[in-house]
Design a protein around this nucleic acid. Structure first.
Lengths: 342, 342
DNA sequence: TTGAAAGCGCTAACAC
DNA sequence: GTGTTAGCGCTTTCAA
């Protein structure tokens, strides 16, 4: 005696019985295979409804087709996990991914790859068929993970262009455009002595923001704006600002490559007795939390992270269904958020 | 002809062949069933090593045992997703979960439940066997989700005590203790007129922080500290502070129920020309990003979120392996992080 | 204690 | 176009 048969969740078999067809036909309908008689298809769809049938992912996976899930891999240098997760950037990207994927009825599996061996395992995880593909979010641009996925021939899409060129799809921001937005705004408000606090030179995004800023300033007839480097932390921004102030005392505008450094700049400026934006205008990048909690609140360049994340998911899904397509990259435009600092 | 047989990932069958035993025996060894001859067990383990065998989750799941994965469900009111994910709180909890689970070789699946129907689907997801249990992180305390899991008899553990009492395990912070830490600090620095900015009364954590603060102040002989309410946003903190200042002009210390409201208080205080901490000392709660980016930097009460998240995962895993155990709750102690505001 | 064998729910040849 | 059938890798009675 099989107990509680009626409490079982309905299977393909059940639907087939109700519709009066074979399992195969139901499978075809459920998977949208074209070669099915219209009348039968309707009957099957009705049966699916009445039974409340939902495909069993494990069975699908085992039968050798799709896993019905994708991996969201967070990669980074050893032990950088704490830092990654504490950054709202990660949360916003994750949110965008989850939200988009949910409309397709799929839930991402979170895989942490914060060591070389963990990266290998992440690839294995997907290779084993636990996921149909991977969304890769790296903290460091020179990450080895994208390469591993490319080599394994597994569907994968990156958030942000990899430092090492690889044939892989990615979404990214038009960083130069964002930097130009900032430069233009500074010049438009009448700043004549503009400097910038750049991020680490080995981070592509930081490079792009710097070069975008320089080019924009050159267009405004100021090709030699002062530059100080930071590492994206508040403290480094504070130091860089102090440095800039020492080198260019008459400076009246600053563009920082991220909000945290801009917040640090605000601190240094206050300590130096300069009013913001009256004496010095400041613009940040990212529109992250510090931008709205700092005093004054930061004018900043915002990234459509959620949209980018959704697009990243879309690209991956496409790549999974249409195997063997060429890598694609989608670049998004940032916009300026005007607040009180510039 | 079966192609590329050698590139297949090893199965139980392969291990069995190498070890010279049956699949059943290998299965027993792999699953730690006691009734296996010691010698055979060793042989099997060796075979597992040489073949590099790893169990296939889909097959396990299909065969009716464990899914080998757990769901991390983010619940909240309709459309609150954006907000949730942008908050580093979520990221830190997620990080703690992922990090702990990884040591057990399992990866959480992220499930968003930001509507009543989505909550139903989240329960279904687990009921269908896609996950062995769920970790529930709610934005609102009166969430229906915990109840749904309890009713379905599915293993689940909550982050934070639910407003509606339910027989379910959870981890939480000793909020009263944290509030007392703040009160004590304020009194110890010599504040004589202390007020508090409380959070929404329907949030258990906010209630606890308020009552903990009041009790501590009562112990110091000040049972009637002024209270203003906010909703955890910076703006609400600013408003509440202005209100407090109007009602209690000679106030010299403030405890805000979270850092964002404390940052707002800082703003109001600056506008009112009060120096912090010289005129008015301020203490926040959470040790979140604004605490270290504000000026002055906030002295605040810190929660060991990652530890709490790890413990939450541990409780769930326990509950999964030892079915039918009583709900457990683990309360963690906060600590004071001294910075510049008090 | 160990092995043989029956599925778990589904997909994909292959035959009709 | 549709049905039949052979697995996918694993767990788990049931015998031995």
């Amino acid at each position: 005696m099989r107990p509680r048969k009626q409490h079982r969740t309905p299977t393909l078999e059940d639907v087939a019985r109700v519709a009066g067809v074979s399992r195969a036909t139901v499978s075809r309908v459920v998977n949208g295979v074209a070669t099915v008689d219209a009348a039968l298809r309707l009957k099957v769809m009705a049966a699916v409804d009445t039974t409340g049938y939902r495909p069993n992912n494990a069975a699908r996976q085992l039968a050798g087709r799709k896993a019905g899930s994708i991996a969201l891999v967070i990669s980074g240098s050893d032990g950088s996990a704490e830092q990654v997760f504490g950054d709202p950037f990660f949360g916003r990207v994750t949110g965008g991914v989850v939200k988009h994927l949910r409309t397709k009825g799929i839930h991402p599996t979170l895989v942490l790859a914060d060591s070389e061996s963990a990266r290998g395992e992440a690839v294995d995880y997907v290779r084993r068929g636990n996921a149909d593909g991977a969304l890769l979010v790296s903290t460091h641009a020179d990450d080895t993970l994208p390469g591993l996925f490319v080599d394994a021939g597994l569907p994968a899409v990156l958030f942000a262009r990899p430092a090492l060129h690889a044939p892989i799809s990615y979404v990214d921001l038009a960083h130069e455009v964002g930097a130009a937005l900032a430069a233009d705004r500074l010049v438009a408000r009448g700043c004549r002595r503009v400097a910038t606090i750049a991020g680490p030179i080995d981070v592509p995004a930081a490079q792009d923001r710097l070069s975008g800023f320089r080019q924009a300033m050159a267009r405004h007839g100021e090709p030699y704006a002062a530059v100080a480097y930071g590492n994206f932390t508040l403290e480094s921004g504070e130091l860089a600002m102090a440095d800039l102030l020492a080198r260019t005392p008459d400076l009246d505008g600053v563009f920082a490559a991220n909000d945290l450094m801009a917040a640090g700049a605000l601190r240094a400026l206050r300590d130096a007795g300069r009013a913001v934006p009256a004496d010095v205008a400041v613009i940040g990048f990212d529109d992250s939390a510090p931008a709205s909690t700092s005093t004054p609140r930061l004018t900043t360049v915002a990234q459509p992270l959620e949209e980018m994340a959704a697009e990243m998911s879309r690209l991956l899904l496409d790549q999974i269904t249409h195997a063997g397509t060429e890598p694609v990259c989608k670049i998004f435009d940032p916009h300026l958020v005007l607040r009180d600092s510039a």
